[in-house]
Structure formats: C-alpha cells, structure tokens
C-alpha cells in the first residue's frame, strides 16, 4: 500500500463464538421490537377459541390440547432445524478459517484489509455499511457479511470504544 500507514491497527483475530453469534444477527436487523405486538391479536383469537370451546362442553379441552400439540410439535421441529442449521454454518465457517490461516486484520485510515493465506480483501471505508457495538466486541457489516472483532484481540492500550471511535472517524472522512 502506498498511502501513509499512520495510525494503522493490525492484529490476528480470534473470532470468539459468542461474538460471532451476535454478529450474525446484524444483516437481519432494522425492525423495532414493537413488531412483536403483532402476536397479540393471535393470542386473543386463541383465548377466544378457548372460551367458545369451553361453553360447548367439557370434552373440548381435548380439542384445545390437540391444537396445542400441533403447535408444539411444529415449534420443536423448527427449533431443531434452526439449531442444526446454525451448527452447519459455524462448522463451515470454522473449516474455511482453518484453511485460510494465518488471518490478519489491518485497519488503516483509508481501508480495512483482510489478509488470508488464500485470499486478500481490501474494503474502502465507504464499503462498510455498519460499525456496530456488540457485547465484547465490534461488528463490521459489509452487505450480508459481518466481520466480528473481539475487544480482547485489539492491540494493547486500545479498548473497544476507542477502536470504534477511530473507525467511525475514518469512515466519516471517506
């Protein structure tokens, strides 16, 4: 790189799993938690149905139990699926990383550079869609990809907040 490397931050990332999990949610964000209120009408409907079936006779608890069983089976099945998919993805990521080692992250005033044994990527700061504060680190989102930087990987004397402040300043200047 020809430009000045003043203030460049360079280190080997460790990708702690807890941080990766938070980072994976970043591309899906953008809706307020208030949306969860939309489940309210569904619940009311369910209670109403319960009330109606109650008046029809005592046996109808069985009917509600039937509906409940159906709900529960699909819910459990979906949870198993989500868990299995998550496991697949993390195995995949781990394998790809193992193949790509050694991995270096370099942050300079102009770019974010990823050096892998089998690939090299340079992002200008204008490529970074989001610099998010996560618990124990920072998430850098580029379209659907998120790179998680653990605070503990940062060079000595640099904490997460200072790191993010510096990245934001570089990005604003870009």
């Amino acid at each position: 790189m020809s430009e000045s490397e003043n203030g460049a931050i360079e280190f080997t990332p460790s990708f702690p799993p807890a941080l990766e999990k938070q980072a994976a949610q970043l591309p899906l964000r953008g809706r307020s938690w208030l949306w969860n209120l939309m489940w309210l009408p569904l619940m009311l409907l369910f209670l109403l149905a319960l009330n109606i079936s109650d008046r029809m006779g005592s046996d109808d608890w069985f009917f509600m139990a039937g509906i409940g069983t159906g709900l529960a089976i699909v819910f459990l099945w979906a949870m198993v699926e989500v868990y299995a998919n998550g496991r697949y993805l993390s195995t995949l990521t781990a394998e790809a990383r193992e193949k790509a080692e050694p991995i270096r992250f370099r942050f300079t005033p102009k770019r974010f550079v990823l050096e892998l044994s089998n690939a090299r990527t340079e992002y200008l700061w204008s490529a970074i869609d989001e610099i998010a504060k996560l618990r124990g680190g920072t998430g850098l989102r580029i379209a659907a990809m998120v790179y998680a930087v653990a605070d503990e990987d940062l060079p000595e004397g640099l904490d997460g907040d200072t790191f993010r402040a510096r990245l934001n300043a570089w990005r604003d200047a870009a």
């Binding site: 139990a65 709900l71 699909v74």
Partner: peptide
C-alpha cells in the same frame, strides 16, 4: 376431530 385440531395447530405454527 382431535387429529384435525392437531393439524390446525401445526398449520397455524407453520
């Protein structure tokens, strides 16, 4: 009909 109820529940969840 209890089986039908189960299917309804599953359908709602899906």
């Amino acid at each position: 009909f209890y089986t039908v109820a189960g299917l309804v529940g599953a359908g709602v969840m899906v």
